[in-house]
Design a protein around this nucleic acid. Sequence first.
DNA 1: GTTTACTTGATAATGGTTATCATTACCGCG
DNA 2: CGCGGTAATGATAACCATTATCAAGTAAAC
Lengths: 152, 152
Amino acid sequence: MATPHTHTHDHGSWNTHAADALARKGTRRSSARDAVVTAIAAQDCCASAQEIHARLRTDGSTVGIASVYRTLELLHGMGLVTRIDTGDGVARFEPTHPGGEHHHHLVCTSCGAVEAFHDDALEEAIHRIADRVDFRVDAHDVALRGACRACR
Amino acid sequence: MATPHTHTHDHGSWNTHAADALARKGTRRSSARDAVVTAIAAQDCCASAQEIHARLRTDGSTVGIASVYRTLELLHGMGLVTRIDTGDGVARFEPTHPGGEHHHHLVCTSCGAVEAFHDDALEEAIHRIADRVDFRVDAHDVALRGACRACR
DNA sequence: GTTTACTTGATAATGGTTATCATTACCGCG
DNA sequence: CGCGGTAATGATAACCATTATCAAGTAAAC
Ligand SMILES: [Mn+2]
Ligand SMILES: [Mn+2]
Ligand SMILES: [Zn+2]
Ligand SMILES: [Zn+2]
């Protein structure tokens, strides 16, 4: 039931999915946005704007930090990216897969490490709550906090 | 199963609980800390440092904002207070009840309203995950995001 | 090619939180 | 009781992730 999340995504498929959605929305094509989208497509789990920016600059890109934030905001507004707050005051983002398939996070309060997990019973419970409550539930997030193997 | 959380806490009991824990820890008694502890004891759900500070000042207290942050950090470190991040860049805090009884939150992404809920199946699922995963889980939090009745 | 307005990158501004520091005031001890 | 050591305080400066601003660049429509 609770499984260490296996990374079996095709990075290219999300990239295409996102590019299509952007084209459909009618945004112009630009190298900055392309670079950010490609960088996000390569992630299996969450990364902050600053981390994405640093990775891009290391790879020789000249994208500005503002464009990273702007692109993340755009993609988030379009539901192409999931925002995750691990509680350290930094927003992290990961690709949202079209099928609804996703994972949640184990956060080490000692070293800040983030691990992914998935659990069907958890999803089922959340789904039932959403049906029962006087609130339209669009999204959910779950974080388990504690100590990772290394910090324990 | 999923119930709108009923507020049946005795505010005084958490206040005493916290005061005892602070005494046991050997901290000095001060009016600033007392005021913050009392303010938190009066909460049924989460409030930010600034909100707590404003409430105290309105009530005639001269507590500085720094003391509010310091007290929250102290109480959080002692496990007396739960920190909640609703994703708007503001940390909120609510009293941690000794029996482990707690609730989770519905967050309206439109107006920012926060409602509490509790669900046994959800807790059970999380408990099972904690047992199964290679991680020491000390705490967990769950947020359901969407639109409240008023914003829907 | 020209025009239009979407994008960009640099940089200033914002705002919650944290660090600093001189001053205050608990509280154990004589 | 007083003292003295030092935890705690409140004002304020510093920090830092995120946002807003703006002049310059550049897709894409015509
Ligand atoms: Mn889920
Ligand atoms: Mn719970
Ligand atoms: Zn992830
Ligand atoms: Zn609450």
